[in-house]
Design a protein around this nucleic acid. Structure first.
Ligand SMILES: [Mn+2]
Ligand SMILES: [Mn+2]
Ligand SMILES: [Zn+2]
Ligand SMILES: [Zn+2]
Lengths: 136, 136
DNA sequence: AAAATGATGCAAGTGAGTTGCAAAGTTTAT
DNA sequence: ATAAACTTTGCAACTCACTTGCATCATTTT
């Protein structure tokens, strides 16, 4: 189990320190996107900046991606296996106005959007807001 | 000309003060979304908090809408005539990684997206990032 | 003319995110 | 094995966009 997480890091040339393994494990256990604060609360002994840098490291290696959901707290979620965070991998996100949680809607990829002439899409931040199934 | 702007405010029960008219005029002159800072620079004599509150007032009345483009500076742009900022009025936004500007892509409305069962969409913040036509 | 209401300007606060730097830990070279 | 080089971590301080409290000024109502 931990071996798998360890390999995930090694495969991305990230040294599997104790802290990083814990954070990665925590991320895999979530079914929603989490903020730096959420992680701080989960690991009270750990320092904010260490966690921050851990997330940036993971994000740079495309192990996780970040979502601006409009709450002012950047959210992070695991990428799917083999994700390169390119347009083809993009999915929508849903932010519930009631429970304030943010989810990846990985079932559905973002379709090709007709951009004006000569515009080139590289990334996207797609956030749908409303009421989630649990709160409805 | 100014009469038209004045009416736009009055129609929304906003008192057309000098400051508000100037800000509204400025917004109508843009072909891109602007930040609070952009407006501060355009009106150096005006106070930031007044401008801030002006924008919030406009936004509440759906004269303008805001866009989180991931730059950390919330952007504002005029709504189209008759916009109610409901799902049916939604459009994509484009943020250029090169010139760092953000545009409303009002030509194209956001299509209905297949949400999971019982999810209800109320608003959205859709930002596509890449290279704009001018920078390409 | 006085009172009530609303807008504005100034200054200070909030808070997520970020950075510098020294200490601790790990890896590599001698 | 030991020293040097490199990496990660923890702490504290900083940045910066945004937000708020409050006194003053302007406008509207009584
Ligand atoms: Mn996602
Ligand atoms: Mn727009
Ligand atoms: Zn919910
Ligand atoms: Zn551009």
């Amino acid at each position: 189990m931990n071996k798998k997480l360890e390999h995930k890091l090694k495969d991305n040339s990230i040294k599997p320190t104790a802290m990083r393994l814990l954070v990665l494990k925590f991320l895999t256990e979530q079914n929603k996107a989490v903020s730096l604060q959420d992680i701080e609360l989960a690991f009270e002994r750990a320092d904010k900046s260490t966690l921050f840098r851990t997330l940036k490291t993971f994000e740079n290696s495309k192990i996780i991606h970040s979502i601006e959901d409009g709450t002012g707290h950047l959210k992070y979620a695991l990428c799917l296996e083999g994700c390169s965070c390119s347009p083809i991998d993009l999915h929508y996100h849903f932010h519930c106005n009631m429970c304030k949680e943010t989810f990846c809607l990985t079932e559905l990829n973002v379709p090709t959007i007709e951009l004006p002439k000569n515009f080139e899409m590289q990334q996207a931040n797609m956030v749908i807001k409303g009421i989630c199934g649990t709160c409805k």
